[in-house]
Write a protein that binds this DNA or RNA. Sequence first.
DNA 1: GTTGACTTCCAAAACGTTTCGGAAAACTAT
DNA 2: ATAGTTTTCCGAAACGTTTTGGAAGTCAAC
Lengths: 346, 346
Amino acid sequence: MSNLKQLAQSLGLSITTVSRALDGYSDVSAKTKARVLEAAAKTGYQPNVAARRLRRQRAELVAVTLPTAPGHIGPPHFLDILSACAEHLALSGLNLVIAPVPRGQSELEMCQRFVDGQRVDAMLLVRTKRNDERVELLQSRGIPFVTLGRTESAKPHAFLDGDGFAGFRDATLRFIADGHIHIGHVAGPQAFSFAHHRRMGWEAALGQTGLSSALLAEGDPTEQGGYAAAKTLMSGSVKPTAILCATDEMAVGTLRALREIASGNTVSIIGHDDLPMSAFTDPPLSTMRVTGDDIGVRIASLLLRAIDGEAPEALQEIHPVEFLPRASHRRSQRLAANDAGVQADE
Amino acid sequence: MSNLKQLAQSLGLSITTVSRALDGYSDVSAKTKARVLEAAAKTGYQPNVAARRLRRQRAELVAVTLPTAPGHIGPPHFLDILSACAEHLALSGLNLVIAPVPRGQSELEMCQRFVDGQRVDAMLLVRTKRNDERVELLQSRGIPFVTLGRTESAKPHAFLDGDGFAGFRDATLRFIADGHIHIGHVAGPQAFSFAHHRRMGWEAALGQTGLSSALLAEGDPTEQGGYAAAKTLMSGSVKPTAILCATDEMAVGTLRALREIASGNTVSIIGHDDLPMSAFTDPPLSTMRVTGDDIGVRIASLLLRAIDGEAPEALQEIHPVEFLPRASHRRSQRLAANDAGVQADE
DNA sequence: GTTGACTTCCAAAACGTTTCGGAAAACTAT
DNA sequence: ATAGTTTTCCGAAACGTTTTGGAAGTCAAC
């Protein structure tokens, strides 16, 4: 409500001086500066952001569009990341806004409105696809942006990603070391970058050890999708004794599918994401997570550097994935130990 | 990049006329209007939102601050609601932004910046407390707002709420009808409006049937909180045979706690929220949900009416809660039927 | 007491839009 | 032809801030 003019009038100063005092310029005496600051604090003056943005030609805003699949919004852990990111951006005076995409609208249109209306200084893209039209749009507009997850774009862009390939490869090798021969994969939609990399990791491990990668089923990255995929996986003639799930949510669905199947409870499972609920499933879900508890902060810093004009090539981070052993990755082992005397090594 | 002035110049028209043509005023001829619209579409003109906001004195924005408890952000189902809400608001040209609250900052400060900086036309408050300082702030500023969940504020305000009281009362009566005597409650922090109402419903049912309401344990509204609360509940001298959990997440924690306890698997459980994962627990979680699959749309409509200046008293909705029976609410029953020949009536 | 340097302040322009109050042109009715 | 009405357009002001380019005032040095 209160604006600069009123504040200036009440102090007997010009608008200019008050503005410069608040912004900490050096050409205003310490005394008046103190006077201005005090008055501003007392009246609770807050600059009108529309006016400031108009003049500064900066939105002071970073947006992330949140894809909302029908009945199922993106993974909960996005929000933890975004929250940390917002926190860090705020230190530089930037606000992070999360814009849910209305059903009628495409994520692309959403991005378009953001960048062409000059509403944002930068964008963050999540749920990145291998060929993502949003990336092309943003590149053509020259807007700074960072994606959570690599793409196969020819032109380099800033991104942060977990090394899902290595994570799933190593997890598969772990299963192999445990004596598994039939190792299945409940995969996410391959258009998604993360889903593809995870699947390729699984395939790579099988390939390098000469095992079959036939036990593959794809589904939506939800509990329901995991449930359905696991069902088809377990209905084939050769059944997996271990399953890698692309996400924890799919793993939860897989667990339920196995519960409904005779001897399903001997199948070992590993997920990915380390959702809060994963520690509470039955059995507790062995899973993976991207290392570093500051992913959100890293993203924020990438965004800031992108806004500062740093080259995209310099703004690419791939973080290792760590394995979190709980109970679900050793289910057949326990039985195998009973049946055949195989010894656990951990 | 392109602005009204350029567009007008290229058409040989005045800024005024172009502006009015785009806004669909009647005092511009059909022919020029078509010409303007075409040119705007071709150049991809998007009005500069900062300028428009400054002039219109409207932010075209509704904000919701998302509380992010350390390590655990608000319930996932908020997002489904918010997404539907955003969708509906978009129809009226309003954008919904979700602002995560940085750790260093209080939700109140966040609200303050939003309203005093004239960044928003209205606010949506979630995770409402019984005595919520955000409500007071917004009331004092005269900003339209809607809360998700009632408060005990003396001055009426717009809200939408589920009838948690009736839901938990009825669920408790259901347990009583099933023959339970010792019915526990894993409660959420009582400062939260929803947690309090649910607890009062549980107490009311016990009170009206003369049963004890001693089996109460409170915890954070998370899996971990439910786990801890259930543990203390089951460690008393008299143990519950049925437990109502304030949220599904707490129910998931409770399930795990029971799993670790001898004969814990005979304890019946009911949760609330109908999270996607609830259908996939073991046993599948019986739960409750606020009726109507358009809560988000209802909220949006309340917000629009609040912005239009309708009186808060007219903007209060309490929606009934429906019970979703799955397996977890009849665990002891099955055993009891074996043990004592009690017959299930459903 | 004039010069130059420094400090402290300010008027005015600009950002891109919307909107008020007309003005010119084109009809209509007399 | 003239007055009145309607249609179609536009100039200029405003929204609240930041920033440019000085203008006064002060002080020290000669």
